[in-house]
């Protein structure tokens, strides 16, 4: 039998698929792009949710991984479009416009960054952890601003979207489907992770560090692995996001971006599997609808966030289906 939350999750996944298909039928291309943006930002949030939701790691530096994924795309694609190798000595590395290769490199690069950032920042906790992750993110942000080879402050544009074998990625619905399938696969992975031995130990480390040590497991190792997986997923989202816009800039690395990813997770429900999807959808809808009336639309976002934090600790998903049932 399905729990209420699972039923809701299936409905949400179906809605995210149905909306752009309907939009396609009605020739509303812009809505397809919005849905793609929701899917990609939700993916970034699913990444953060592993660290924040399961592990209780309040990272305000996930923009670093989002931006690294973005720059992985930007750098590889820029070299490919200009027919300039990235380096020739000691060996030749060329750019590429193949999405699967770009994704792989985005994942590896952001996982490595998460390994280094995590290994240093996970020695702290609480407010110090928030500040040190923030600092690492900002460090990369300022580095990108001064990195003139890839546009510096102006960012790096690419002319055509990268390619996926057998698909026309410039067709909005096909690119949406790529993002959608990746999101679904990562959601399945995340759901399994949450119920795995690793997920149990990580969730225990969030609640009672001393207990985890007493049964012979090391919280630091659990958290570091979670942080790397989390960063890798957010990095993949960054590569897709840059491909959606055909543009990458330091903005992707700024702490604003970290905050937004965290807002998706909090609005949807911290630790809830589909929380980031709900959060990203609400964020994009508010931006799109209220943004038309006033450029101060984020006031309403802030209000919503405040309500969530004050009255619905399980976020919107928690408000709809109630407290999480401990899974058996």
């Amino acid at each position: 039998m399905l729990t209420r939350e699972t039923t809701l999750n299936i409905a949400l996944a179906a809605t995210l698929l149905a909306v752009p298909l309907l939009a396609l039928a009605m020739d509303e291309i812009f809505i397809i792009t919005l849905a793609t943006k929701v899917a990609i930002l939700a993916l970034a949030g699913v990444g953060l949710n592993i660290a924040l939701g399961i592990g209780g790691l309040v990272s305000l530096g996930h923009a670093a991984f989002f931006g690294i994924g973005g720059y992985a795309m930007g750098i590889l694609a820029a070299h490919a479009q200009n027919y300039e190798p990235i380096m020739e000595v000691p060996f030749l590395i060329e750019g590429t416009n193949q999405m699967p290769i770009i994704w792989l490199i985005a994942i590896v690069a952001s996982a490595l960054a998460a390994l280094v950032i995590g290994a240093l920042s996970l020695r702290t906790s609480g407010v110090y952890f928030i500040m040190i992750t923030l600092a690492f993110g900002q460090m990369l942000y300022y580095f990108a601003i001064s990195w003139s080879a890839y546009g510096g402050e102006d960012g790096q544009s690419i002319w055509v979207r990268n390619e996926f074998p057998g698909l026309n990625t410039l067709d909005p619905i096909q690119f949406f489907l790529i993002a959608y399938v990746i999101l679904c696969l990562v959601l399945v992975f995340s759901a399994r992770l949450a119920r795995s031995p690793f997920g149990l130990a990580l969730a225990a480390a969030r609640q009672t560090e001393e207990r985890v040590m007493t049964v012979g497991l090391t919280p630091f190792h659990l958290r570091l692995v979670a942080f790397v997986i989390s960063g890798a997923i957010t990095g993949l989202a960054g590569a897709l996001y840059a491909d959606l816009n055909r543009f990458v800039s330091p903005t992707m690395l700024s702490w604003h971006t970290s905050g937004e990813i965290m807002v998706f997770v909090i609005i949807g429900g911290v630790g809830r599997l589909f929380g980031p999807l709900v959060g990203a959808a609400v964020f994009i809808l508010l931006e799109h609808i209220l943004g038309g009336f006033s450029e101060y639309w984020q006031i309403f976002l802030g209000l919503l966030l405040l309500l969530m934090v004050l009255f619905a600790r399980g976020g919107l998903i928690g408000a709809i289906v109630g407290r999480e049932v401990a899974h058996d």
Partner: peptide
């Protein structure tokens, strides 16, 4: 061994 990511622990 806690680093197992796919099997349902329960």
């Amino acid at each position: 061994r806690a680093f197992s990511f796919f099997r349902n622990v329960m």
